[in-house]
Design a protein around this nucleic acid. Structure first.
Length: 258
DNA sequence: ACGCGTGTTACTGT
DNA sequence: GACAGTAACACGCG
């Protein structure tokens, strides 16, 4: 449920809180979704110092002194908790205990959050990378998929989720039902800049309202994908529909290309 | 109370 | 066969 801007803020806060800590013990609570054996994880991470925490697409990456990287994907309901002493959280997937008596726990009642040891590099660029520009999108949009589904496709661009796809499409003035290869060049340009501005602005809002956040999500400032709002900032009624089995919020201000 | 929400995967359909 | 669309996962929250 947290999307790119949330994860971006989490990663910065985790970097502040965890960098320099040494892992004493790795505890696996639920191995179902592990993308590495429990033993490999323990062997790789125990006695290692956290060097860097950063975001990659929708994953958090923890880089250790030996160069190994622990990737955590929170999926829909994954949550992170810092604890002192004993981890009391239910549904723990994985837990890092540090040698100063603190620890980090990843929980998920749905058991879907996924720890990966040394995640493979992906070809699709991160939504905030400079590679996501007009000419990239021009190529990526040469398909008859609906634009909303395309924005959500992590094999095309990494990091955009359901809520921010709606925000971005509204900002760009493109209907979510538009067919990607029917969108004109000037609108592809709007889309490129909307991706950056919507995501960066969200990051700023989240940091302002919730400076220490490492879990959950902040959504109340969203302009369109927001059940509390009836109309867009420019006064159009917000409509709802299902696209790709996801609830989609949009207004008639957005142009439909079919 | 009870239906909604969320990302990915595996499946279905075109 | 390639590409696009969608149900299911499962349960806390409002």
């Amino acid at each position: 449920m947290p999307e790119l801007p949330d994860l971006q803020v989490f990663s910065q806060n985790l970097q502040k809180k965890l960098a320099g800590k040494k892992v004493k013990k790795v505890v696996i609570g639920n191995a179902k979704k592990l993308k590495a054996s429990a033993n490999m994880l323990k062997k790789s991470l125990e006695k290692q110092v956290v060097k860097k925490v950063y975001r990659e697409g929708k994953e958090l990456h923890f880089q250790f002194g030996n160069g190994d990287v622990l990737g955590l994907h929170l999926m829909l309901k994954g949550r992170l908790y810092l604890f002192e002493g004993k981890n009391e959280q239910k549904y723990t997937i994985i837990e890092l205990q540090f040698d100063d008596g603190t620890g980090l726990a990843l929980t998920d009642f749905q058991g879907q959050a996924t720890p990966t040891l040394n995640p493979e590099e992906r070809e699709a660029p991160d939504a905030l990378s400079t590679a996501v520009n007009y000419s990239f999108l021009k190529k990526a949009l040469q398909t008859k998929a609906t634009i909303k589904n395309l924005l959500l496709d992590q094999h095309v661009i990494r990091g955009i989720g359901n809520a921010y796809a709606d925000e971005i499409l509204w900002k760009a003035g493109i209907s979510p039902f538009s067919i990607a290869n029917k969108i004109p060049d000037n609108k592809i340009k709007s889309l490129a800049s909307a991706i950056k501005s919507v995501l960066k602005n969200a990051e700023k809002q989240i940091r302002k309202s919730d400076p220490d956040i490492i879990s959950g999500e902040v959504r109340d400032f969203l302009d369109i994908h927001n059940s509390k709002k009836k109309s867009s900032p420019t006064g159009a009624t917000i409509e709802h529909a299902v696209v790709g089995s996801r609830k989609t919020y949009y207004t008639k201000e957005q142009e439909l290309y079919k």
